[in-house]
Design a protein around this nucleic acid. Structure first.
Lengths: 226, 226
DNA sequence: CTTCAAACATGAGTCAATTCATTTTTTCGC
DNA sequence: GCGAAAAAATGAATTGACTCATGTTTGAAG
């Protein structure tokens, strides 16, 4: 492909995101006008729309960038997870929520969530959904790893368990974001209580003697159909 | 209180909601203009804003009405819950999701969620949050009832467990709503898998021999009332 | 039955995101 | 290089939710 055009395109893409990142954080999403972003990125408002289909999509693109960082951080933990399974899960989910406010404010998260629901099928909406999917998959992966290491009962569908844990995290995060006043400590506390409950369902039943007498009732579920 | 004015106020309130309900469903939330709602309710656009602070708040008010119905339906089930605890929980959550599409479309739910995030602190945003809270509380109540009936382990915080179950439902519902194509059957299936996992953490541990060291009061088993 | 203040209704006006017809720039075959 | 086609840039026009200055109705005191 032609060099100049491609390069300018990427440059402008970056410029827009950088301008938006700065202004959204400084003035808030709502108060930041498209014109201001365009001006800061040295282009006309109309031009901006050649790069992003809407203001909301710019924000979702920023969230996606952030998400990629989180995914990488999570992957590191999964590579060498803590021994205690509950600690391992808790750590992973804490990585997610702790990272969440590094580059984005609660205001931005609220608007990102709103914009996702407004256009879940747009290119950037799908990007957001895909990100969520990747993180959920990461939790599933960790559960699976803990199972094959023998720390968790192998009888449970790691897919469902991972989803459950991720959605627990997500729901509490959502609540956290909707309440400007809630401190992160409270979010963590609420999360850890629920993690504990899930883990008690996932842990290897510590009743070796009884198992011989009464076979455990396994909650076997049909495998997810592709 | 003054009769005429109060009555006219309630009437108009109702008229607006009725008009919006009709138009949102027929044309979609976005395509429905404020002017159209106002016209159908026989008032000027400006007047409408004396009753609802924004278009989104009208939708949230509709959701709240719907939510009240769901709460009532849930209360009935709680009054006489199925014997099997997993069935009881599943039924309650299914009531929620089945009811969800009776009066509202996925499009409306998407916009309702978006509007909630845009204004979680507005009067109607808080109303939405309160509704969520009430439903979550209902699940907690059911868990608690199942505990005192002896169907579930009494050692678990019913508050956290209820929240966990409700959020599981909510998260999957959210996914369902974001994917126009997903059928309700898939939503139910995903939900039931995760419910199963949570329940295995809540159920009375069925390992009597191995639990010798555990506090004896765990083994109290009241007869089920006939 | 008047009168007045408060509450309510009105619709033209404002504001900001998005679109679009037009102009400018880039690419590429010759 | 040169001209036409394609791609990108532009900012004025559009759109639709929301506001506000103004006019109208209501309820109660005198």
């Amino acid at each position: 492909m032609s060099g100049l055009r491609e390069r300018q395109k990427t440059t402008r893409h970056r410029d827009i995101l950088a301008a938006a990142e700065y202004l959204f954080r400084r003035d808030g999403f709502r108060a930041t006008g498209i014109e201001a972003i365009a001006a800061r990125a040295n282009l006309a408002t109309g031009t901006l729309y050649n790069y992003f289909p809407s203001k909301g999509d710019i924000l979702l693109a920023l969230v996606a960038l952030d998400g990629e960082e989180v995914r990488a951080a999570g992957a590191k933990l999964i590579a060498r997870p803590p021994r205690d399974p509950e600690t391992a899960i808790t750590r992973l989910l804490e990585i997610y929520i702790e990272h969440s406010l590094v580059h984005l404010t609660k205001d931005e998260w609220r608007h990102a969530l709103a914009n996702y629901f407004l256009q879940p099928d747009s290119r950037f909406g799908q990007g957001y959904a895909a990100l969520d999917g990747k993180l959920a998959a990461q939790v599933c992966e960790l559960v699976s790893a803990l199972q094959s290491r023998g720390s968790l009962s192998p009888d449970i569908d790691s897919e469902s368990a991972g989803r459950l844990l991720f959605y627990l995290c997500n729901s509490e995060f959502t609540l956290f974001v909707a309440n400007e006043a809630m401190p992160m400590a409270e979010l963590k506390q609420r999360m850890s209580r629920q993690i504990a409950i899930v883990m008690s369902g996932l842990e290897r039943k510590a009743a070796p003697l009884a198992e011989a007498a009464a076979p455990p009732r396994l909650h076997r579920r049909p495998r997810k159909a592709a």
